[in-house]
């Protein structure tokens, strides 16, 4: 159970960007500490629920770069791209705002209580326009999207299918005269068709956090950093490649995610050797694993 507070539209802390829209909610429920800076320098990062590995990597990269530049990431707290955006922001010790499609004490939040708590611990917010116990309905997602669009200075869509809800968010952004930023993807990937559609309609193509900052007029960070075991490290110091085999493995999976079998075949090395190297790199944090595939 979270401590839920209520914010009236008349309150001084009520986000100005939200007040500006015509269908502004009359009050918000929130969790976390709202300050005057809470809603400054916000960028919305949204996308499909059924993301691909590519979508995940793009989201992680962009969010990491945004957080390093001191930008708050706004997203929708739904699995897929949204969760990845929150997750990455929290992992980089950054602030992130989750706009919920349900009340703050609904089961959706309860099921992901761990993430919600981490968001709050890093100074982030959970926000909902619905009463604490209100369950998520199809229409609540739709309504929530307008708040996401309104809060961000721009809306970044990292990966979206043609029927993705993130296109609704983009539509709202268009209505509110916000900058729509879309990440191009493979033309063969169904999950990039939504982004392609946005680009056709005049969205700005972006490939990194810098691009986004430039488009929105924010300052970019000078150096990139990552967190490993809660220690802040420079991004380039983060890779510990010990020998030539590790280097070759790194190069291959930097290209695209690979399974052990694929690595073993591509490198023409035995499974034994590849497995133990990959475990070492995994433990060192150089690479990550998901569903039996390794990526950077």
């Amino acid at each position: 159970m979270f401590d839920v507070n209520r914010l009236e539209v008349s309150d001084i802390l009520f986000p100005q960007s939200l007040k500006a829209i015509s269908d502004c909610p009359q009050f918000l429920y929130y969790c976390g500490d709202i300050t005057e800076e809470s809603f400054e320098k916000c960028v919305a990062v949204v996308g499909t629920r059924r993301m691909t590995m590519y979508g995940r990597r793009v989201t992680q990269k962009i969010v990491q770069e945004l957080v390093c530049s001191g930008i708050t990431v706004v997203s929708g707290f739904m699995y897929g791209i949204d969760m990845t955006a929150h997750e990455t922001a929290v992992n980089c010790e950054g602030k992130t705002i989750a706009i919920l499609p349900c009340g703050i004490n609904d089961s959706l939040v309860e099921n992901n209580a761990d993430l919600a708590e981490r968001i709050l611990r890093k100074g982030g917010l959970l926000i909902s326009e619905f009463e604490p116990d209100f369950p998520a309905k199809i229409w609540t997602f739709h309504k929530r999207n307008r708040i996401i669009a309104a809060l961000g200075s721009g809306v970044v869509i990292t990966e979206a299918t043609l029927d993705s809800g993130s296109l609704i968010t983009a539509n709202f952004a268009k209505k509110y005269n916000k900058c729509i930023l879309s990440v191009p993807g493979s033309v063969f990937s169904e999950c990039s068709m939504g982004c392609l559609q946005l680009l056709r309609d005049g969205a700005r193509a972006v490939g990194s956090g810098y691009d986004i900052c430039k488009e929105l007029g924010f300052e970019t960070a000078k150096d990139m950093y990552v967190f490993k075991d809660s220690v802040r490290l420079k991004a380039e110091d983060h890779l510990w490649i010990k020998d030539s085999i590790e280097y070759r493995i790194y190069q291959l999976i930097n290209d695209s995610d690979k399974s052990i079998s694929e690595l073993s075949e591509d490198l023409d090395l035995s499974v034994e050797v590849v497995s133990s190297k990959v475990t070492l790199m995994l433990l060192a944090g150089t690479i990550c694993e998901e569903n039996g595939k390794f990526y950077v």
Partner: peptide, 8 residues
């Protein structure tokens, strides 16, 4: 074809 890890 392939699947060397599974074979191992």
């Amino acid at each position: 074809y392939g699947q060397v890890q599974a074979k191992r």
